[in-house]
């Protein structure tokens, strides 16, 4: 079992209500809820890149960091995985936190200079250009892993994963070939915050990760619904006959 932390629960189960302070304001929240969820629920905005409420948090981007503890014994932790506990003192916008976020964004801006979301987030933090080095000016992937987690946890097929480590880490299909597990659903492309996963639809064929998927047309209106593979996957999960899914949402 891998440790999972989702939107609702930071630990296996939420505990009783505890009191803590965020930015000096007393807050009540269930014990073991993530600080990110707690802060957002109370109106404190924390920027994130790799977080999604329906996915287990793994803490890759480090943008959601907050400062906990009291001076001088404070500590920077990522709020998406850190649980609430009684008496915890949290700062979401201290100087230390803002400096860490600025450097993280400056590093990402150098990595993906053309990624719109990164440009906007960086600008919102006062970072307009990066002092760091750009390897590939066309790079768009920030390695947040949302696509990998969505494919594995939500779609439930695991067609893509991370390959390698730091110097050449990338999201890839096994052996960089057409992934036999892929059902062409496009969830990875949909969830991607920087729109890096190429995805086209032409003449009833969807192309993603180098593989072509024939789209099923709605038996009523004739509009394309989803790839046949995906509908078969749905049928397998639900136990319904695959034909159930041959009618589009609008015609049902």
């Amino acid at each position: 079992m891998v440790w999972k932390i989702s939107d609702e629960t930071a630990f296996d189960t939420l505990g009783e209500e505890v009191r803590l302070t965020i930015n000096g304001i007393p807050i009540r929240a269930p014990q073991n809820q993530s600080l990110l969820v707690t802060a957002r629920a109370n109106g404190f905005e924390i920027p994130t890149l790799c977080y999604h409420r329906d996915l287990p948090s793994e803490g890759q981007c480090r943008l959601c960091v907050v400062e906990i503890g009291e001076h001088p014994h404070t500590q920077i932790v990522n709020s998406c995985t850190y649980p609430t506990s009684p008496g915890l003192v949290v700062q979401t916008h201290s100087e230390k936190v803002m400096q860490a976020r600025r450097i993280v964004l400056e590093l990402l801006l150098a990595r993906t200079p053309k990624a719109k979301l990164i440009q906007e987030l960086a600008a919102a933090h006062g970072v307009y250009e990066s002092r760091f080095k750009t390897d590939d000016p066309e790079e768009l992937c920030i390695l947040c892993g949302l696509c990998v987690r969505t494919c594995r946890e939500v779609v439930g097929v695991s067609a893509i994963s991370m390959k390698g480590r730091t110097p050449d880490k990338q999201v890839a299909t096994p052996f960089l070939e057409k992934s036999p597990a892929c059902i062409g659903c496009g969830s990875c492309a949909f969830i991607c915050p920087t729109n890096v996963i190429p995805y086209t639809e032409k003449n009833g064929v969807r192309t993603i990760w180098g593989r072509d998927f024939e789209l099923q047309a709605c038996t009523v209106c004739g509009n394309y619904i989803e790839p046949k593979y995906q509908l078969e996957h749905w049928a397998k999960i639900t136990g319904d006959p695959v034909e159930t899914f041959f009618v589009c949402k609008d015609c049902r």
Binding site: R152, S158, S161, M162, G164, S179, P180, A181
Partner: peptide, 12 residues
């Protein structure tokens, strides 16, 4: 074990 995990491990 999914092939993706094996590929990940084999390249890590």
């Amino acid at each position: 074990v999914p092939l993706t995990q094996i590929y990940s491990v084999a390249t890590f």
